[in-house]
Amino acid sequence: MAGAGTPVAMKLAFSTLGVPGLAIPDVLALAVANGYHGVELRAHHEEPVHPGLDPARRAEVAAEFKAADVEIVGLAGYVRVAAPGDDAPVLAELRALLELARDLGAPFVRVFPGGDAGLPREEGDAIAARRLGLAAEDAAALGVRILLETHDSHPTGADAIRVLGPVGHRNVGALWDVMHPWLAGEQPSDTYAALAPHLGYVQVKDIASADDRTPVALGAGVLPLAECVEVLSRHGWDGWLCWEYEKRWHEAAAPLPDLLTPARDHITRLLTESA
């Protein structure tokens, strides 16, 4: 716990979702030049890092990050743990993501809920909890934590905890994407209270408006970033804040590289003000 007046030492990262397809050396150069100590890698076949990488390339990527003194915060995968259907293909996809994280030295993998709106809520919760429970021991053996993101069918902390509570395993936790709980009407203090025992890291972002999710510079939009940082600071949380700038889905958005240093300065200012 930080002392009064001392900013909590949260660590800053950015997601490669903001620089679609960019080669790893260029991603690392951006991180170093702009004062970021971590990167979240979008683990998708469109990107340089994905579960199809061979062992040699995995070792090369891990070595590139080590040489640059930049950490891989996590792998942003696309497994949908509450989706209807057989467990086997979902668990196989998740296992491949966990093995990639192990090989790269990444501590976390992100999964989505992805529940079907046509199913009863309890059924989606049970599907997700069952699969995460089955994958938890694999994750533990590989030294990786699975993080369920506040997203789609489970946008709030209250939604996520309905799944995480029954799983009850230290290798299954939560990723707080600050946008989705806010859009669903949940206050940052309530999201934190629900997720705190399970929280892996936090994705920060900003958007033009509740009706226009075009990404904008941190502090230039409507999301309650100051309140989120204040809640985290008040509780002495010292994990990663990762800027997820959704350039991949919004091609007309401003390029991320020019925004990285101003974003770092904005978050640093919020941390100082919340001390």
Score class of each variant (00 low, 15 high):
1 M>W: 13
1 M>L: 13
2 A>K: 15
4 A>W: 12
6 T>S: 15
6 T>G: 14
7 P>V: 11
7 P>Q: 11
8 V>E: 12
8 V>A: 14
9 A>L: 15
9 A>Q: 15
10 M>W: 04
15 S>G: 07
20 P>A: 05
23 A>V: 09
26 D>T: 07
28 L>W: 05
28 L>D: 03
30 L>A: 08
31 A>F: 03
32 V>E: 05
42 R>D: 04
44 H>W: 06
44 H>Q: 03
47 E>F: 02
49 V>F: 06
55 P>G: 11
57 R>H: 13
57 R>N: 09
63 A>N: 11
66 K>Y: 12
69 D>M: 03
73 V>S: 01
76 A>R: 00
77 G>E: 00
78 Y>I: 00
83 A>P: 01
83 A>L: 00
84 P>G: 09
86 D>I: 09
89 P>Y: 08
91 L>N: 13
92 A>I: 14
95 R>M: 10
96 A>D: 07
98 L>C: 12
99 E>Q: 14
102 R>P: 08
103 D>S: 08
104 L>M: 06
105 G>N: 05
110 R>E: 01
112 F>E: 00
118 G>W: 04
119 L>V: 08
119 L>R: 15
122 E>F: 02
123 E>Y: 03
129 A>I: 14
130 R>K: 15
131 R>T: 13
134 L>H: 14
134 L>W: 14
140 A>Q: 10
142 L>D: 10
143 G>C: 07
145 R>A: 09
151 H>E: 09
152 D>Q: 07
153 S>M: 06
155 P>G: 04
155 P>Y: 02
158 A>Q: 08
161 I>G: 08
162 R>A: 14
162 R>G: 13
162 R>N: 13
167 V>L: 02
168 G>M: 15
169 H>N: 15
170 R>G: 11
173 G>H: 01
184 A>F: 01
186 E>C: 03
194 A>G: 10
198 H>A: 01
201 Y>V: 00
204 V>K: 02
207 I>N: 05
209 S>L: 11
211 D>Q: 14
211 D>K: 11
213 R>Q: 15
219 G>Q: 02
221 G>S: 11
224 P>V: 07
224 P>D: 06
224 P>L: 03
229 V>G: 02
230 E>Q: 07
234 R>I: 06
236 G>Y: 02
238 D>Q: 10
241 L>S: 01
241 L>R: 03
244 E>K: 01
251 E>P: 07
252 A>H: 13
258 D>N: 11
259 L>P: 06
261 T>I: 12
263 A>K: 03
268 T>N: 15
269 R>T: 12
274 S>H: 04
274 S>K: 07
274 S>M: 10
